[in-house]
Design a binder for these strands. Structure first.
Lengths: 227, 227
DNA sequence: TAGATTGTTAATCGATTAACAATC
DNA sequence: TAGATTGTTAATCGATTAACAATC
């Protein structure tokens, strides 16, 4: 059982560990030390051992970690065996891309239904997930056990839909809209995928890099003139 | 000019400031204090002032910050006025969704071309962005000035395409594939959008919440039995 | 001028890294 | 047994928060 509050930084590293362990598994590696794992992930062995020790003792002195066993532990910590049920609200571009490409089941999540207002979609199925009318969202939530809502509606509809979701007891919202959903007082868990935030952060680093290059070139220029 | 290395945490907050300032602007708010901004974003006033002070003095004692001016400063810091040029590699589900829905120009980035191997797409345009054959990627990079590549190809093609991109001097890769692109030695900037990492982190918090509820219920149960 | 609020220095807090005894 | 590597305690480092003089 988890006792102490584990920091967000640690939680964010867990999926990376999981992915690396899956990769090791595929390559037939069944055993790994924190030193080796650290090198492959760009982390210190200390950090890795500290991270794991938040949840238990998964290794063995003199040996390291058993890859499949550690993988199973982390999957358990992340709740992948709990069979969380999700619905998708908004089957537009991004919603459709998620249904088609993204493997919810690889994350241990079951996508049970989708909702949209577009007449041509309502009543159809995609990859055996039924698409219902948006107007049925509220009654569906009341009548079914749903943990997670994937919010992929247009910006204008986001607030209205969020209200329906939170008022009908959804645990968590995976937010693909570009609005700030996180409310200070709300008990609903919100996880944002903000494409523009991600791109802009990257742009900062590109700009920084270019400035460094320019500064270096300017210095070289000055040095040359001095000769 | 930027002198000191600014921490990643600060950089990740900049796009949030930007979004909030845009919202304030739309609502006709032209002036804000760090106290008020902090309340709206769930940050301390101290942190906000510290963040900004990494880049300059944007406020005024006794007054606060001018919203449009601060917005412009942050946009500048993020490199939004530099006219970075991007290409999209892979016009599948997610690539197409980005072309259709995502506003590159809102981030100050110009999407100049897209590439795919699908015959029916090659030679067409989408929203006035030309789609070329994947085989033309390398020559395009040599002949054109491109800063950013948006990588939205299937998993299997990711490594091969990344090699072409890095060998032809791309500055940064916005990675939508689920593979770990970050190489320790590579000079290429990589920004990952890992859907599954995001969903799994969220699942952890959902699981934690449920465990807390269960524990509370169990405690209540025991208390009742004692009576 | 008086009140408000900045930018910055100092204090605190938390996360990462180092060290090491325990033990496989 | 000897070597390797863990889990954990202590030390360091960095980020956040608090305090306050400067000043609009």
């Amino acid at each position: 059982m988890k006792r102490v509050k584990v920091s967000n930084n640690v939680i964010r590293r867990l999926p990376r560990y999981l992915r690396k362990l899956d990769e090791l598994n595929e390559n037939g590696v069944s055993r790994i030390s924190s030193k080796e794992l650290g090198e492959q992930l760009g982390l210190t062995p200390s950090q890795i051992r500290q991270d794991f020790s938040n949840f238990g003792e998964f290794g063995q002195q003199g040996y390291g970690y058993n890859v499949p066993a550690l993988r199973a532990e982390i999957a358990g910590i992340l709740g992948m065996e709990r069979g969380f049920r999700a619905i998708l609200v908004g089957v537009g571009n991004i919603g459709h891309a998620l249904m088609d490409n993204f493997s919810f089941s690889d994350c241990g999540v079951e996508l049970v239904a989708a909702f949209d207002v577009k007449e041509s979609l309502i009543g159809t199925e995609f990859k055996s997930v039924p698409i219902y009318a948006g107007s049925r969202l509220e009654s569906y939530l009341r009548e079914n056990d749903v943990d997670i809502a994937v919010l992929a509606v247009p910006k204008e509809a986001a607030i209205r839909v969020t209200k329906i979701l939170t008022e009908n007891g959804i645990e968590a919202i995976w937010n693909f809209t570009n609005i700030e959903l996180t409310e200070p007082n709300s008990p609903t868990i919100v996880e944002n995928i903000h494409f523009s935030d991600s791109l802009l952060s990257m742009c900062y680093y590109v700009a920084e890099r270019m400035d460094e290059h320019a500064a270096k070139a300017a210095r070289a220029e000055r040095t040359e003139q001095q000769d």
